[in-house]
Design a protein around this nucleic acid. Structure first.
Length: 817
RNA sequence: GUCGGCGUGGCGGAAUGGCAGACGCGCCAGCCUUAGGAGCUGGUGUCCGAAAGGGCGUGGAGGUUCGAAUCCUCUCGCCGACACCA
C-alpha cells in the first residue's frame, strides 16, 4: 500500500521507533512496591505452536488495550506473558523433523512468537515471562505435586483409564470427548487397566460448585458448564439384601427414594464385583459371555443412547428393604460402574431407561407416583405407555400412600436411616483427575519406587528431578529411571510418567507474582498482593479443563496457607475466534495472516483497531481486507485532522463551538466505559464519530481555538490504547512533553458529558408526534406550551383543540383531541 | 433427548423499554485526477411521492405497556454444551 497524496503517516517509520522507546523506558514493568492500586490483566498463556496469526493476536490486543488504559488511569498494572511449553505437539513436530529435540522446536517458536507480539505493539512485563518447560519453572510444578501428595490429594491407583492409541498416553476424563481423544476427533479412546496417578479433585467438588456463586463476573454459560460437569446430585444409598447370601446386600444409589416401592428389578454394571458371586449356575455361561462382551465394547458403543439396551438375568434375587418383595437381579451395560455404586434399583414406571429395559425384557412395571390431577392407575399392569418422571402423589407405596412425592423423599430416607437400611447420599459426576502421561515432554513426577519403602516422594532438597537431555521415552532410559531410594539408599526406580500439562497451567498466574523466586513456587506475600486476577481473557474451549483445574489448585493452595484468595479469576472473558474465508484462521489451514504481513503492509496500529472494530469481542468474526482498509482510512483521516488541519477544505463559514466540546466529553465517557466493559467495537465507533464531528467542524469553518486544541488532545489520548504508535507520534509532534503512555487518561467530565436536557415524547391519540428537548426541571405548564407550539403536533390536531392532556411518566405527555 | 444462547439493511453490526439501522464495509452519483483498487462531497431498509411528507418494517403468532428489537407466552430456524450419571 502506497502512501496517499496527503503526506499522512507511514507506520513502518514510527512503529519500531516507539516500540524501542517503550522497551527502553520499561513502560509495562510492574512494580511490586507501588503505592498505586493494582490491576492484574491476564490473557491465557498460549501453547507455542509457531502458528501465531493476527487471529490469536486479537486476544492479546484486547488485553493490551485494557492494560494501557488502566495504566493511564493510575493503576499499577501487571500484564505478564508466558508459554504453556510442555506437551505433545512439540514431540510430534520433533519426530517429524527427524529426531529434533522438542525443546529446540519449542524455544525457537517462543523466540519467534515473542517478536511477533512486540511488533504488534503489545506491551508485557517480559521480565516476568514464564516458560513452563524450563527447570526453573517445572521444578516448582514438581514441588507442588509433593504438596498435593503430602496433603493426601495425590494418589496412585489401578483403574480403567482412557488410552489414546495415537498419542500412546492416557487421558483425563476432561480430555475425552464423545469417547474420542480431544486431539484426534477420529480416534476412539481405549479402556486399559493401569496404575496411574490421580489428583483428588472430587474432595473439592462441593466447594468448586458452591463458589461458582461468587463468580458473578464470569459468563453464565461457563458457570453452567462447570455446574453440569461437577454434576452434584442428592439422594440416598439403599441396601438390598441378597437372597441366599446371609448378611450380604447390594448397595444402590438413587435420587428418587420416593419410588422405592416401584423397584421391580435391580441392575448391576457388568464390572460390578458381585456379579460373579451371585450368578446362578444356570445363568453363569450367559452372564460371563455378556460381561466379556461389555468389557470389550468401546465407550462410544456403550454410551450411545441410540442403541437398544441389552442385559441378562443373573438368576439371583434381592429383597426390597421397604416391603421385603423379591426382585430379580440383572446385569446390563447401561449401568456404569464409574457412577454411584455401580448398581441401581430399577423403577421402570418412573425412569425412562428402566422403562425401556423393562419393556424389552418383559419385566413388571408398577406405578407408584400418580401425576397430579390424574387418577392413579390401580393395576400393576404394564399398560403404561411411557414412564412418568415428574413429582406427584405416592401410590402403591404402603404406609407412604397419599404423600406428595417431593416430601416423600425425605420421609423414605428417614425411614431407611432409622432401620440402618439406607442413608442420605450425595454423588458427583466429577471424577478424580488422572494426571499421569506416558510422554517424555512434561514435568517429571517426583516419585521413586523402592522395593522396601514402596512409594517414596523425592525430598524437596533433591528437586528438581530433571528431564534427561536425551530425547527418548523415560521408561527406556536407564540413566533416568535407575536411582536409589531417598529413604533407605537401595537401588530403586523412578516414576517414568510425566504430568498432564494442565498442571503446569493451573498455577502459572501465581508464578508471575515472583517469577524469579528460587526458594519456592511463588512468594506468598507478592501473590497476595497481585491476586486475584482482575481480568482473565481466553477462549471458551477452556471453560471446563483449565478453568476448573486452576480453581481447584487455588483452593488447595489456599488451604495450605499459601494464598489468601480462594478463587483465582475475578472477571472472565471469552473472546471469539477470527475466521477468514469461513474458517478459523491458522497457518496450517493456509488462511492465516501473520503479524509480519500485517505490520509490513497496513501497520500494527491499523491492524489493532481493526481487530477491535471487526465485531463484538465475544463473537467469531470474519477478517476481510476491505474492512481493514476502512480502518487505515480512519487513521489517515485522524492524522490529517491533527497534523494537517489546513489541508481540510472549508465549505461553510463559522460554526458554534459548543457541540465540539460536548462531543469530546461524551466520547471520553463512552470510550472509558466501553473499554472497561470490553466493548471495543463500540469504543472505536465512538472515536470515529468524534473524528467525523471534528472534520465537519473544520469544513463548516469552525474555529481552531482552545476548544479545538483540547478536543484534538482528547482524541489523541483516547486513541492511545488502540493505536499506541501513531497517537504517541502525534502527541510528540504536538509538542507535548513526556510520553503519551505516561500521560493521565482524560478526565471523566460527567457534567459536560451529561445532556443537561430531558427529552419529552409528545403523543397525540397514542401516536408519537414529536420529541421536545427541554431543560431539566421545566414546569408542566411550560412543557405543555412547548408541545402545543410544535408544528408537527399542531398538524396532528388539524386545527382542533386538545380535549384532554395526560402526563404519563417522566418523559411523556399524551394529548387527546 | 436435556440444558443454554442467538435470529435487526446487500454485509459486519449499533440501540438504560423512548425517532430502529450508530460506526464501518459494499454499492450509486458527483468532484478532483493523464489514470486509479488514492482522496473529497452527497446518497443508500422498503413501498407511495417530483418534493414535502406518509405507509410498512428487527424470523413468525399472540400478550404486557402511553410506547417493545428489548419484557412475557407459544412457534419456526440456526448455533453451542452435555448426552444411559440412576
Amino acid at each position: 500500500m502506497s502512501p496517499s497524496r496527503h503526506s499522512g503517516y507511514i507506520p513502518q517509520d514510527i512503529e519500531p521507533k516507539w516500540q524501542k522507546v517503550w522497551a527502553d523506558h520499561g513502560v509495562m514493568k510492574a512494580a511490586d512496591d507501588s503505592p498505586k492500586p493494582k490491576f492484574y490483566d491476564l490473557v491465557m498463556y498460549p501453547y507455542p505452536s509457531g502458528d501465531l496469526t493476527v487471529g490469536h493476536a486479537r486476544n492479546y490486543v484486547m488485553g493490551d488495550v485494557l492494560a494501557r488504559m488502566k495504566r493511564m488511569q493510575g493503576f499499577e498494572v501487571l500484564h505478564p506473558f508466558g508459554w504453556d511449553a510442555f506437551g505433545l505437539p512439540a514431540e510430534n513436530a520433533a519426530m517429524k523433523r527427524g529426531g529434533m529435540h522438542p525443546e529446540t522446536w519449542t524455544l525457537a517458536n517462543i523466540a519467534k512468537g515473542r517478536q511477533e507480539l512486540k511488533m504488534m505493539g503489545i506491551l508485557y512485563d517480559w521480565d516476568r515471562e514464564v516458560i513452563s518447560c524450563l527447570p526453573d519453572y517445572y521444578q516448582w510444578t514438581e514441588w507442588l505435586f509433593l504438596l498435593f501428595y503430602e496433603r493426601g490429594l495425590a494418589y496412585r491407583a489401578m483403574a480403567p483409564v482412557n488410552w489414546c492409541p495415537v498419542d500412546k498416553t492416557v487421558l483425563a476424563n476432561e480430555q475425552v470427548i464423545n469417547g474420542r481423544c480431544w486431539r484426534h476427533p477420529d480416534v476412539e479412546v481405549e479402556k486399559r487397566d493401569l496404575e496411574q496417578w490421580f489428583f483428588k479433585i472430587t474432595d473439592y467438588a462441593d466447594r468448586l460448585l458452591d463458589d461458582l456463586q461468587l463468580l458473578d463476573k464470569w459468563p453464565a454459560k461457563v458457570r453452567l458448564m462447570q455446574t453440569n460437569w461437577i454434576g452434584r446430585s442428592t439422594g440416598a444409598e439403599v441396601d438390598f439384601p441378597i437372597d441366599g447370601l446371609k448378611g450380604e446386600s447390594i448397595r444402590v444409589y438413587t435420587t428418587r427414594p420416593d419410588t422405592l416401592f416401584g423397584a421391580t428389578f435391580m441392575v448391576l454394571a457388568p464390572e460390578h464385583p458381585l456379579v460373579e458371586r451371585i450368578t446362578t449356575e444356570k445363568q453363569r455361561e450367559k452372564v460371563r459371555e455378556y460381561v466379556a462382551r461389555a468389557r470389550k465394547a468401546s465407550d462410544i458403543e456403550r454410551l450411545s443412547t441410540e442403541r437398544e439396551k441389552t442385559g441378562v438375568a443373573t438368576g439371583a434375587f434381592a429383597s426390597n428393604p421397604l416391603n421385603g418383595e423379591k426382585i430379580p437381579i440383572w446385569v446390563a451395560d447401561y449401568v456404569l460402574m464409574t457412577y454411584g455404586t455401580g448398581a441401581i434399583m430399577a423403577v421402570p414406571a418412573h425412569d425412562e431407561r428402566d422403562f425401556e429395559f423393562a419393556d424389552r425384557y418383559g419385566l413388571p412395571i408398577r406405578q407408584v407416583i400418580a401425576p397430579p390431577g390424574e387418577p392413579p392407575s390401580t393395576s400393576e399392569s404394564r399398560e403404561l405407555r411411557a414412564p412418568y418422571v415428574g413429582p406427584g402423589l405416592m401410590v402403591n407405596s404402603g404406609e407412604f400412600n397419599g404423600l406428595d412425592s417431593t416430601g416423600g423423599i425425605e420421609r423414605v430416607i428417614a425411614w431407611l436411616e432409622a432401620r440402618g437400611l439406607g442413608r442420605r447420599a450425595v454423588k458427583y459426576r466429577l471424577r478424580d483427575w488422572l494426571i499421569s502421561r506416558q510422554r517424555y515432554w512434561g514435568s517429571p513426577i517426583p516419585i521413586v519406587y523402592c522395593e522396601v519403602d514402596g512409594i517414596v516422594p523425592v525430598p524437596r532438597s533433591q528437586l528438581p528431578v530433571l528431564l534427561p537431555k536425551e530425547y527418548k521415552p523415560l521408561s527406556e532410559n536407564p540413566g533416568f529411571y535407575e536411582t536409589t531410594c531417598p529413604t533407605c539408599g537401595r537401588p530403586a526406580r523412578r516414576e517414568t510418567d510425566t504430568m498432564d500439562t494442565f498442571i503446569d497451567s493451573s498455577w502459572y498466574f501465581l508464578r508471575y507474582a515472583s517469577p524469579k523466586d528460587a526458594t519456592e513456587p511463588f512468594d506468598p506475600e507478592l501473590a497476595n498482593h497481585w491476586m486475584a486476577v482482575d481480568q482473565y481473557t481466553g477462549g471458551v474451549e477452556h471453560a471446563i479443563l483449565h478453568l476448573l483445574y486452576s480453581r481447584f489448585f487455588v483452593k488447595v493452595l489456599h488451604d495450605a496457607g499459601m494464598v489468601n484468595v480462594s478463587e483465582p479469576f475475578v472477571r472472565l472473558f471469552n473472546q471469539g475466534m477470527v475466521k477468514r474465508f469461513g474458517q478459523v484462521m491458522s497457518k496450517s489451514a493456509g488462511n492465516g495472516v501473520s503479524p509480519d504481513e500485517l505490520v509490513s503492509k497496513q501497520g500494527a496500529d491499523a491492524g489493532r483497531i481493526y481487530e477491535m472494530f471487526i465485531g463484538p469481542p465475544e463473537e467469531d468474526v470474519e477478517w476481510t481486507d476491505a474492512g481493514l482498509n476502512g480502518v487505515v482510512r480512519f487513521l489517515q483521516r485522524v492524522w490529517r485532522l491533527v497534523m494537517e488541519p489546513d489541508s481540510i477544505v472549508v465549505e461553510g463559514s463559522g460554526a458554534e463551538g459548543a457541540p465540539l466540546e460536548r462531543k469530546a466529553a461524551q466520547t471520553v465517557k463512552k470510550v472509558t466505559e466501553h473499554f472497561d466493559e470490553l466493548r471495543f467495537n463500540t469504543a472505536v465507533a465512538a472515536l470515529m464519530e468524534l473524528a467525523n464531528t471534528m472534520q465537519s467542524h473544520l469544513q463548516n469553518g469552525g474555529p481552531r481555538d482552545a476548544t479545538w486544541e483540547s478536543t484534538v488532545r482528547v482524541l489523541v489520548k483516547l486513541l492511545n490504547p488502540l493505536a499506541p504508535h501513531v497517537s504517541e507520534e502525534m502527541w510528540e509532534r504536538l509538542g507535548e512533553s513526556g510520553m503519551l503512555a505516561d500521560a493521565p487518561w482524560p478526565a471523566y467530565n460527567a457534567a459536560a458529558a451529561a445532556v443537561p436536557e430531558v427529552t419529552v415524547v409528545v403523543q397525540v391519540s397514542g401516536k408519537l408526534r414529536d420529541r421536545l428537548t427541554l431543560p431539566v426541571g421545566t414546569p408542566r405548564e411550560k412543557v405543555l406550551e412547548a408541545a402545543l407550539a410544535s408544528d408537527r403536533v399542531r398538524a396532528a390536531f388539524d386545527g382542533r383543540q386538545p380535549s384532554k392532556v395526560v402526563f404519563v411518566p417522566d418523559r411523556l405527555i399524551n394529548l387527546v383531541p
